[in-house]
Nucleic acid binder design. Structure first.
Length: 342
DNA sequence: GAGATTTGACCTAG
DNA sequence: CTAGGTCAAATCTC
């Protein structure tokens, strides 16, 4: 029962993040070149969070990923900039009834001679590569990873990653098994750059999304004494590295929105307001909301019933939104700030 | 030297 | 029998 709630909330979170990522993608198309790079940076943060949540969910949510040992295997580089929204998510049960969870994520643009391992998105867990195989009728080989802590903690989580034939920047990531290892949540991040999202309304558990420029930690933490309302103002920063770019602060706010989902849904925050709040040391987007996860549409589980009925359940990204009674349409952005556009 | 990656060989489900 | 998945020795990196 508790797990069902968790799954539901995780799916909600995925929906929210996916939509946020979509909105940022749309938004970036309206921006000038300088700001577009920043917007894409934010978009990539959403995408990374999505991958992390997907990984957590796929591996049973037993553990939250850590930051800090992503080094070696599956996720070197930390240059992940993609999301499940690029394709579809599906649950596959093939051999021996083993349930696998597949998501599509967008990695970095492949460079000639650059190994796949440097392009594979970081999902926050620590993986060790144990094999690579050429797959029939596939352009690119499939890489096999297991949890780094398989040996010393008997963690059985596995994943394999394969680059899409159609779009080499898209990686199909399949997760299998549960993380039982204790990969600790990174503690090196300042909370001022973290997004804390309550996983369960009734509990004190949160997902923490860090929109810092370093690796993103995401994890649960106990906050029995925390006032939730104080941590429900997610923000993410855009820090331009371009010399000469005027530093400004932009706020995206939603006076009427009561959820993060609403804030990023079409007709939500972006249509409610998007303003420049003046100069600051860094370009800064903030999403204000009164309450995260209030209610954005039922929170149905696209996780389904773990494929008990079907061997393959294919779920295009759009259906994630559909499953939550969301309709993603072209937003109507009242971009009033002249600095935003060419 | 320890740990991670590579890669050919081997195993096994379908 | 075949293709996907794993093993393990060789190699690489820090």
């Amino acid at each position: 029962m508790e797990n069902e709630n968790k799954t539901m909330e995780m799916n909600r979170l995925l929906t929210i993040l996916s939509e946020g990522e979509d909105e940022m993608r749309r938004l970036s198309s309206h921006l000038n070149e300088q700001l577009r790079a920043d917007a894409m940076n934010v978009q990539s943060r959403f995408s990374q969070a999505i991958a992390i949540v997907s990984s957590m969910e796929a591996t049973g949510m037993n553990q939250m990923p850590s930051q800090g040992h992503t080094g070696a295997s599956g996720s070197p580089g930390g240059s992940f900039s993609g999301s499940p929204s690029e394709g579809s998510e599906r649950i596959v049960k093939k051999r021996k009834g083993i349930v696998k969870r597949t998501i599509n994520v967008q990695g970095t643009v492949p460079d000639d001679g650059q190994p796949d391992t440097t392009l594979v998105p970081d999902d926050g867990f620590s993986w060790r590569k144990y094999g690579q195989k050429n797959i029939l009728n596939a352009k690119y080989p499939r890489s096999y990873y297991r949890c780094t802590f398989q040996k010393n903690q008997n963690c059985e989580a596995l994943k394999h990653v394969q680059r899409s034939d159609e779009d080499p920047t898209i990686f199909v990531v399949t997760y299998q098994g549960d993380h039982i290892c204790t990969q600790h949540v990174g503690k090196t991040q300042s909370t001022e750059h973290q997004l804390l999202i309550p996983i369960q309304n009734e509990s004190d558990e949160h997902v923490m999304i860090n929109f810092n420029n370093s690796n993103i930690p995401i994890g649960t933490h106990e906050s029995a004494h925390d006032d939730q309302s104080k941590i429900l103002s997610p923000s993410f920063s855009i820090s331009s590295t371009q010399a000469g770019l005027r530093s400004e602060r932009y706020n995206v706010f939603s006076p009427s929105s009561t959820s993060f989902g609403g804030a990023f849904s079409s007709g939500g925050a972006f249509s409610s307001g998007f303003v420049s709040s003046g100069a600051s040391d860094s370009n800064y987007f903030s999403v204000f909301q009164s309450q995260f996860g209030a209610d954005f549409g039922g929170g149905s589980s696209f996780h389904g019933s773990e494929s008990e009925l079907n061997d393959v359940i294919s779920l295009p990204h759009s259906s994630i939104s559909a499953a939550n009674d969301f309709t993603v349409e072209q937003p109507t952005f009242p971009f009033d700030s002249p600095e935003l556009f060419k």
